[in-house]
Simulated assay, not measured.
Amino acid sequence: MMDQRDPQTYAIIGAAMEVHNTLSYGFLEPVYPEALILELSRAGIPFRRECALPIIYKGEVLTCHYRADLICFDAILVELKALKRLSGAEDAQVLNYLRACELDRGLLINFGGAKLEYKRFRR
C-alpha cells in the first residue's frame, strides 16, 4: 500500500524495513547505513551519503557544517541510529538539522530495537 501523502519517505522506510528484516538488531550503527545504501540503490532511490550541509544562522552560512547520514531525493534528511530506544533528544536533533540546513522533510530511523522505529518530520 503506497502512502499517497509522501511516497518518497514511504520508499525510504520500506528500504529500511528490508534492512531490519534481514539483519535484525544488535549490530553496531555503521552496519546499517552500509546495508541501507544497497537497498536504496536497488530501489532506485537517489541519495547522497555523509554529505556536508551548511548551517545557516540568520541568513549567514557558518564555517562549521553538519554531516548528514543521508540526503535522499535531494530533499529528505535521513538520520540513522542503532539505539535500544530513542530518548527524544534525537527528535530535537533532526528538527534542528532541518531548520539549520533549510530542508523541509526528515526521517529518523532507529535499527536498534526488535522492531524498526521511524519518525517523519516536517519543518
Results as ranks from 00 to 15, higher is better:
2 M>D: 14
3 D>K: 08
6 D>E: 04
7 P>Q: 08
8 Q>M: 13
9 T>H: 05
10 Y>T: 07
10 Y>H: 14
15 A>Q: 14
21 N>Q: 14
22 T>C: 10
22 T>I: 02
23 L>R: 06
23 L>P: 07
23 L>K: 07
24 S>L: 13
26 G>P: 06
27 F>T: 03
28 L>Y: 13
29 E>N: 09
30 P>L: 09
30 P>S: 08
32 Y>C: 04
36 L>I: 05
37 I>F: 01
43 A>C: 08
44 G>W: 12
45 I>T: 06
46 P>E: 15
47 F>M: 06
50 E>G: 05
51 C>K: 15
52 A>T: 08
55 I>E: 09
57 Y>M: 08
59 G>T: 08
59 G>E: 12
59 G>D: 12
60 E>Q: 14
60 E>A: 09
61 V>M: 13
61 V>T: 15
62 L>M: 13
64 C>E: 14
64 C>F: 10
65 H>S: 14
66 Y>C: 00
66 Y>H: 12
67 R>W: 01
68 A>L: 11
69 D>W: 08
70 L>G: 03
71 I>A: 07
72 C>I: 12
72 C>R: 13
72 C>M: 12
73 F>R: 07
74 D>Q: 14
74 D>V: 00
75 A>E: 15
76 I>V: 15
78 V>L: 07
78 V>T: 07
79 E>S: 02
80 L>A: 00
81 K>F: 00
83 L>P: 04
83 L>N: 11
84 K>I: 09
87 S>P: 06
88 G>T: 11
88 G>C: 10
92 A>D: 12
93 Q>F: 02
95 L>T: 11
96 N>I: 04
97 Y>Q: 12
99 R>C: 01
100 A>D: 13
100 A>I: 02
100 A>L: 13
101 C>R: 06
103 L>N: 03
103 L>R: 13
104 D>P: 02
105 R>S: 07
106 G>C: 04
107 L>I: 01
107 L>K: 07
108 L>C: 06
108 L>W: 06
109 I>Q: 01
109 I>G: 00
111 F>N: 03
112 G>V: 05
114 A>P: 11
114 A>Y: 08
114 A>W: 04
114 A>I: 09
116 L>H: 03
116 L>K: 08
117 E>S: 03
119 K>I: 03
119 K>C: 00
120 R>L: 01
121 F>S: 05
121 F>D: 11
123 R>E: 11
